[in-house]
């Protein structure tokens, strides 16, 4: 009995609790103000306003986001920063991850973990000196500040994952290429990188997600509404003093969350492979 249905008995309650905030966001998004701010009715359903039941749901708060706020700009800012940061990250981490996995032998492991430990140095420790530094360099309130700083956490993370992936590619494959007259660099570009494409894609997805998630740097470095990322734009601009635009806030949250969750879920198995491939077996 438990053997057969155990998965559901354990998973369904957890899935309900973990997923509930998103269900609540979805319900909230389409609510009329009068319905939302009424403590006497059941909050889980759309209560008709008088007899006009067809007006009990509304999309006007979604329209508000796209017409009255800079939501689209924030998304574009976030994507631009993520793209450049992930580009820099790959450029630096691909060779490093490969070298740590292959060429450097026994101290490679130690060096790899050393780089990874840097990932554990939290932004909350670094933002205080970085904040005046960024202002002094004249890149305060600019996306450039984020582009320079974000690789500080994406590079350690990506190097670690890529090291894991490269370790799963058999050395014999490269040796064969070397025997066939390839140089080591050609072997790298022609043989190793194409095989590790899924791994690279995984690094891209989780790298982008790290950039989307980042809050404290974006919050302290960027002050104008135009240059905000999605993580700081939504809480800063859709909450005005004591006024919360709840329906709009919930949709603004739901959209990126679902997209990222879909990507995460799709690449989860690859992520697990890279994560354990490095060490900690």
């Amino acid at each position: 009995m438990f053997r057969r249905f155990g998965a559901y008995i354990v998973l369904v309650p957890f899935a309900v609790v973990l997923g509930f905030p998103f269900l609540w966001m979805l319900i909230t998004t389409f609510k009329q103000d009068l319905d939302l701010y009424n403590a006497d009715t059941t909050p889980y359903i759309y209560n008709p306003l008088q007899w006009r039941f067809w007006e009990s749901m509304t999309t006007k708060h979604i329209e508000y986001i796209f017409t009255e706020t800079k939501y689209v700009d924030w998304i574009l800012n976030t994507l631009a920063v993520s793209a450049v940061v992930v580009g820099i990250t790959l450029l630096v981490s691909l060779p490093a991850g490969y070298a740590l996995a292959r060429l450097s032998g026994s101290w490679g492991q130690t060096a790899g973990i050393g780089i990874f430990l840097v990932y554990l140095v939290p932004p909350t420790l670094l933002f205080l000196p970085l904040s005046p530094l960024v202002a002094r360099l004249g890149i305060g309130n600019s996306l450039l500040a984020l582009i320079v700083i974000y690789p500080s956490f994406t590079i350690p993370f990506a190097t670690w994952l890529l090291m894991g992936f490269f370790k799963t590619i058999p050395q014999e494959l490269e040796d064969a290429a070397l025997v066939d007259g390839c140089s080591r660099l050609t072997a790298l570009v022609r043989i190793v990188f194409p095989i590790s494409l899924p791994g690279i894609l995984t690094v891209v997805i989780f790298g982008v997600s790290l950039c989307v998630n980042e809050f404290i740097y974006a919050f302290t470095f960027i002050t104008s509404s135009d240059n905000r990322t999605i993580s700081t734009g939504v809480p800063n601009e859709l909450i005005r003093g004591d006024v919360f635009f709840w329906q709009s806030l919930m949709f603004a949250t739901l959209l990126p969350s679902l997209v990222l969750a879909f990507l995460y879920n799709t690449f989860l198995d690859k992520f697990i492979k890279g994560f354990t491939g490095g060490a900690f077996r």
Binding site: V16, L18, P235, A252, P256, A261
Partner: peptide, 18 residues
């Protein structure tokens, strides 16, 4: 699994707003 992964995938600032 998608439902279980959701809280981790959601940008932390936005999930907190929920």
């Amino acid at each position: 699994r998608m439902l279980v992964v959701l809280p981790w995938a959601a940008p932390v600032a936005l999930g907190t707003l929920g």
